[in-house]
Every structure is written in structure tokens, then in C-alpha cells.
Simulated assay, not measured.
Amino acid sequence: MAGRVVVVTGASGGIGRATARAFGAQGAKVALLARGEVGLRGAAEDVTAAGGQALALPTDMADYDAVREAGRRAERELGPIDVWVNVAFSSVFAEFVDIEPEEFKRVTEVTYLGFVHGTRVALDLMLPRDRGVIVQTGSALAKRGIPLQSAYCGAKHAIQGFHESLRTELLHHGSGVRVTIVHMPAVNTPQFGWVLSRLPKQAQPVPPIYQPEVAARALLYAADHPKRREYWVGGSTVATLLANKVVPGLLDHYLARTGFESQQTDQRRDPDQPANLWRPADGEDGRDYGAHGVFDERSHPRSYQLWAAEHRAVLAAGALLGLAGLRLLCRMRR
């Protein structure tokens, strides 16, 4: 990635922040898009300290004109965009009947249409050159809905359908532009302290929880290996999606029984915690939230499933060698 131009949306915190830093460590030129200017400054410092070049561009992903201008400015100041990574999102933790229609609309505009806007801007710049990579940050919740996150699950399901449709169109035209999607497990990001919540207790990711650097490594790998249509990160993602294919009805009842408690800690929710649905959280308190949430002690620093995805060729070769050895052994015993 050294010298390549990369755009990361949602770069002020969480997965986007860790991803920007990961590209910076590869020597990339990274354009950082997000609303929170405090977080953007921190992200730019992270990228520079890691060895990359940073350009902070305050942008609301729900505003297509703003996203288009950010893309054009990134090209003017950094050069032709090679990779565009969509990460930005917002959400509401609440039962569907407790989410106001304008709140649901706002989540959809940021989380789904934000990806659509970013993808359209990237394609407008990449298609004339017939090269480039677009990476969508998906989720296990793009294929399996859970309680208390109807707005987010709906948006992520929409991103999955959008990705599949776009990918087939690019394949039809034989385009050199690649698109892929990376489905994430529960990640230890600051969102659980800044997403609008109406839960009685503090929101938390559904265990097992992974560190944001795991997600960042997956997005970095996908950007460098975009021919695969999608990646699954974390054993929990694999287990959830496979179970949903085989016994979706049973999973409905399981989540109805466990999904409320598993998404809340034992502590009461702070009624004064910031909510970033309408404005960036760091704009309210001037705090740089960084990449990590408060669940470091419970979070995994690696994903064996991701390691397997990164080493498919080695594992396949090992399997073939093992099979050949087994066949040889069987012949020798005859």
C-alpha cells in the first residue's frame, strides 16, 4: 500500500480509526472522512505517526454533495484514489417501537446511503481509469437481524444487497474496478458509549468481542485481495451465519430469549452520555474517543478465522499434501 491513495470513511473513531492507522502503517496516503473534527485530528496524527500521509476532511456521509467534494479534494491533494473503504455508520439501541421515524431515517441515511454515496463518488473517479478497489464494512447483522438494532440491521442488510447488485454489474462490464465486503463480529469500539440508546442499562457488543485492529487487518487484507466477493471475520460471525442458513427459526427464538440481556451490561445507562445520531459525539464534549471502547479486558486481539482466510493457499496446499500422503499410505498397506 506504500504511496497508494486510500479514503476511509468514519475515520474519527472505532473501526475506521484503526483502519486508517493500519493503512498509514503501510505508507499509504489516507484521506479521512467523518463529522467529528476532534477525532479527525487524532486520526490524522495516528496516520502520520504510523508512517503515512493524512488529509482530514470533515464530511457528513449522508450529504452526497459533501462526499463528492471530499472525494474530489482527496484526488487534488493526494492523487488518484486507489482504495475507498466505507465504514461510517450510526445507530439507535432500542426496540423498533421506541425509535422515532426521523431517527430511523437518519440511521438509514448515514449507514446505508452513506455507503451508497461513497461508492458512487469512488466509481465516478475510478471507472474512467478502469482500476480501483471499494471495500464495504459489513457485519454479521447484514445477514442476521437481532433485537434492539432494527435500524442498523436494516441498513446493513441493504448494504449487502446493494453490494451484490453492484458487483454483478461490474462483472457484466468486465470492469477493472473491484468491490468486496467484509462482515465483522462484535467489536470493541466507542460506539456503545455514544450511540443513541433507550436501553435501561449500558449497551455492549454481544460476546465474543474483538479488538478494532482485527477488523482493520481484515479490511486492509480485503483491499489488497478484492477478488473474493466477501470475507467473514471471527468464529462468531461464521457460526451465526451458518446457523441462520440451517435453522433460522430456531435462531429467532434463541435471540428473542437472549438478545436483550446479552447486549447490556449490569450497569445502568448514563442518561447524560453523548449521542452521535444528529451531531458528532466529540463535538459535544471535545473528547477524542479513539479506536477502542471500554471492553479491552474482554476483547480478542486476533481472529483465527481471519488468519485462515489470509492463508487459504497454504491451508489448501497442506490439505492436498495430507490427502496425497493418506492415499500413498493406503496403497502401501494393500
Rank of each mutant, 00 (worst) to 15 (best):
S90H: 12
G132L: 05
V92I: 11
V107A: 07
E102Y: 01
V92N: 08
G114L: 01
V121N: 05
I134D: 00
E109K: 13
V110N: 09
K105S: 15
T119F: 03
F89P: 00
D82R: 02
I134K: 02
A94Q: 08
T111N: 12
L113T: 06
R129V: 08
H117E: 09
L123R: 09
V107P: 10
I99A: 08
R106S: 13
E95W: 06
V83L: 07
E100L: 14
A88F: 08
G114M: 01
E95P: 03
V87N: 06
V110R: 05
T119L: 03
N86E: 05
F104V: 06
V85F: 04
K105F: 14
W84A: 05
A122E: 02
G114P: 01
F93K: 01
A122D: 05
F115K: 04
L125W: 03
W84I: 04
V116C: 13
E103K: 09
A94G: 06
V116D: 12
E95H: 08
V97E: 11
V87Y: 00
P128V: 11
A88S: 10
W84P: 04
T108G: 10
E109G: 11
V83S: 07
F115N: 12
R106I: 14
L127V: 13
A94D: 07
R129Q: 09
T111R: 10
R131T: 07
K105R: 15
E102P: 00
V116Q: 14
F89T: 00
Y112H: 15
V133D: 14
R106Y: 13
V107W: 09
S91Q: 06
V110Q: 06
V133Q: 14
F93A: 05
A88L: 08
D82F: 04
F104P: 04
H117P: 09
F93H: 09
E95Y: 04
E102M: 00
D82Q: 04
A122W: 02
V133R: 13
A122Q: 02
L127H: 06
H117D: 09
F93Q: 04
T108D: 14
H117Q: 11
E103P: 05
T111E: 11
D98C: 01
V92H: 10
T111Q: 10
V135Y: 10
V116G: 14
V92D: 06
R131K: 11
N86I: 02
V133N: 15
F96R: 08
F96V: 12
T108E: 13
P128R: 08
L113E: 06
S90C: 12
G114H: 03
T119N: 01
E95G: 05
E103N: 10
E103H: 13
E95C: 04
F115A: 15
T108H: 14
Y112E: 07
E109F: 12
